[in-house]
Design a binder for these strands. Structure first.
Lengths: 234, 234
DNA sequence: GCAAATTAATGATTTATTCAAG
DNA sequence: CTTGAATAAATCATTAATTTGC
């Protein structure tokens, strides 16, 4: 369908030089090792001038879980590259087996897998088909959110049925309720939690990494695969 | 509900059953190889038992921008590793120079840098002190959000001042307004934009990637600089 | 029976909130 | 009290289901 080609636009650079006293402004090619061999001179601009890409798949940016940067980054990337034959990267389409595993994990209590967990899950699921860490990450995000949403809705419904018994919102066609509502759902715990967690904690060397695995980031405790014991480092 | 999903396969339906109580008990451990080894028996519990991790820095997980997985992942990681000497990773403390650059970029119109941009910015700012891609990522996220918030507040204030001229909220100590309020602030544009972007799109080969760089992701239309017309794409 | 049209799910992003270090 | 960090909610976009007209 759509091929993404970049319109090699030439962006102009930043006209106004900041002139901030210090001279940091330009990302001058210096440090930028040019990983990119500086394509169009975009680099020294320090400014994104590009008109913005038109094709959705032309450039994806994204926020993805740190696991990405961990060691099997290469693997994942490789995978990705292979995946994109011609048509833009189509979105991940989980295989039944993959879903099965994911759901099991979820039911096991996993809610927000950390980098290692994601790495491993990804690796495991990779056996059933193409998959990237971000897919796993997103899956949990979405699943968690939707599960909660579903429960909330159910609770409301139950409530209304129980109480009024007649005032069914009716407007449920799709997803009726917008936010709001707090209901009391949510089993217990998991309320007001929010802790820091994420990112690059994986230090401890890739090598060392293989130490302990189970470390449920949130409230889970399950041990996914009998794999290498991930370093529990601390 | 209709069960569909997966052609053929018959495993249990969707993740959560609509009704609050219906719980698909068995997970049919089929594919999951061992998860069964169940460490603490947590698995069959299906519920999160873990009390939660204790050390904040013990495990960070996080969502980080794709750039992470790109090629200088190694670099970043390296950096991270070095950063975490013993005490938990203290949060990034931007140096004046770094901020200067970041603000400049922001003013220039950059709102949501893509992976490459982040990579490069990080690299550049690295000259002024320790910094990771996520810092850049977060900085933009926060700056954007707070800037918007600030503006909104200012607008409201202006409005009230203009109209009533006497009813100053007074309750501004911190952030008075929680969400809500729509006012009319927000210069213009920048409403309802949202496009896909992120993640691993960098395919096209690292080599190819070095094609277009600039692209200001969002809708900023400020005319600070005589730049491109900002693709209005949609 | 099959393919275009429609609808329901759900993968992927972005925005809004919240938490907590300094 | 400022703001880096992280999570949750809201959205958007694409694909699988299902329906409908032939």
């Amino acid at each position: 369908m759509r091929l993404h080609h970049f319109h090699g636009v030439a962006y102009f650079d930043k006209p106004a030089s900041p002139s901030p006293s210090s001279s940091p402004p330009s990302i001058s090619s210096s440090s930028l090792s040019s990983s990119a061999t500086t394509p169009l001179g975009a680099l020294h601009c320090l400014r994104p001038l590009a008109p913005k890409i038109s094709f959705p798949e032309a450039r994806k940016m994204v926020v993805l879980p740190e696991f990405a940067r961990v060691r099997n980054a290469a693997r994942l990337l490789h995978c990705t590259l292979l995946q994109v034959p011609a048509s833009g990267t189509t979105r991940w389409n989980p295989s039944p087996d993959q879903i099965k595993v994911l759901e099991m994990l979820y039911r096991g209590g996993m809610r927000t897998p950390n980098s290692f967990q994601i790495e491993q899950i990804t690796e495991e699921l990779g056996k059933y088909g193409r998959i990237e860490g971000k897919n796993v990450f997103y899956w949990f995000q979405n699943h968690k959110a939707r599960e909660r949403q579903k429960q909330k809705r159910a609770a409301l419904l139950t409530l209304s049925t129980t109480t009024t018994l007649s005032s069914l919102p009716a407007a449920e066609t799709k997803d009726g309720l917008r936010k709001k509502e707090e209901a009391s759902s949510e089993d217990a715990s998991s309320r007001k939690r929010r802790r820091c967690r994420t990112w690059g904690d994986v230090h401890g060397d890739v090598t060392t990494t293989t130490e302990v695995v189970a470390d449920c980031t949130d409230d889970v405790t399950l041990e996914l695969f009998p794999l290498r014991p991930q370093g529990k480092a601390n």
